[in-house]
Design a protein around this nucleic acid. Sequence first.
DNA 1: CTCGTGATTATGTATGCACATAATATCGCA
DNA 2: TGCGATATTATGTGCATACATAATCACGAG
Lengths: 230, 230
Amino acid sequence: MTATTHHGIREAIRARIVAGEWQLGELIPGEVEFAEEFGCARTTVNRALQALAEEGIVERKRKGGTRVRPLPSPQAQFRIPVIREQVESRGQEYGHRIVLRELRDPPDEMRTRLQIGSGQKAAYMESLHLAGSHPFAFERRWVSLDTVPGFAEADLSELSANEWLIRTVPFSRGEVGLTATSADPRLAAMLQAEPGEALFTMDRTTWFEDRAVTATTLYYARGYRLEFGI
Amino acid sequence: MTATTHHGIREAIRARIVAGEWQLGELIPGEVEFAEEFGCARTTVNRALQALAEEGIVERKRKGGTRVRPLPSPQAQFRIPVIREQVESRGQEYGHRIVLRELRDPPDEMRTRLQIGSGQKAAYMESLHLAGSHPFAFERRWVSLDTVPGFAEADLSELSANEWLIRTVPFSRGEVGLTATSADPRLAAMLQAEPGEALFTMDRTTWFEDRAVTATTLYYARGYRLEFGI
DNA sequence: CTCGTGATTATGTATGCACATAATATCGCA
DNA sequence: TGCGATATTATGTGCATACATAATCACGAG
């Protein structure tokens, strides 16, 4: 296997790093050297090494050369799961039920997070995501009407709030937090769990440019496990 | 800003996608078209669009053209945190204490996961990661002596087991799972938590090529939150 | 010995070109 | 009309080249 594609070269170099040919933090050969070895143009090696750098396998500095990353804290890539896809990929039918939907005065902490002026209301909703007839996750969501005025009248019978927002508001960035929560009585009732049970929890805040769009917290039913490879 | 670097062009196109210039799933202009618009070579546009494709922003098909991804389920990139760095980045002093370390017969589930033949022992250890004088996380770890024979005699007074393994065994891939666990009495005692309290839990199995290296479960102390941006 | 300046060097990146490859469209033939 | 061969087209990729940029090193002036 001496495919002289940037792809092939990238994998060849990756294999040699993984095999321990160079120490952690050690300088590896330069682009020219590799190019001679693989019998290709420097450009090609450059692309391969840049790709490895983006993956976090190596570090590169002009003039400094390329070195294996000292602490290869593995970068995990995973997709924030779309609940519908998660459920359907388990071969179950997805459904969702809006438990509560109203305009509300957000608590102070949420005002700050969503940049909502005091006195202004925001849309609040609670909904239950179902896998077949079993609860899969319970969602609490705040939506800034300032950023998304149309949300108050949105028809959410077909699309979930999340899907509606994705289609309506292009969103640029977000923050995600993962925690464990003890089920309070309401959560326990919603998710058919014991009060106090440990629930895997994901909360997310998203912005469009500089304006907060929505903040949601998802409480997953018992036994949920978010898996990914590295 | 009309920097004609692949980097600049990538950001320009990204901005236009985010701004909603094209519908989800819609075809965006071809490489030649963009090249004319930006006044650069097609190669440069190609690199920019390929980068966006790797990010999952667009989909490309030969002859089919480039289109905005239909469901921009945001890809999150985050680094699996190295505990020492987490603690130190909070301005606290990192320490760790080995609670238990011995050779043991792994339970069946673990035999399968680590590919350990029946009758063979594996290294088992429990350790406590400290932030200052407070417990930060409790770790249960199995190590395959088949893959890492040196582990039985490794000096773990300076490096944590994880850091020792990273430096010793190059590792190629792993699987990570995130869950919520209720603290059992032992966990509660170790982490100064209430029994039954919800603990954020991360387990990991890593392989070197086709051989399992180690499987660990990390129970984080109360209130831990794994954060990342998208 | 110290400091600054210029030479050196490795990576970063744009370009024009050639050819590869995959998917689609079109046309000719039965 | 139906089907298969062929042309077309958009992306994929490699190469040689030129120049940019940042970091380091060597050297010489003070």
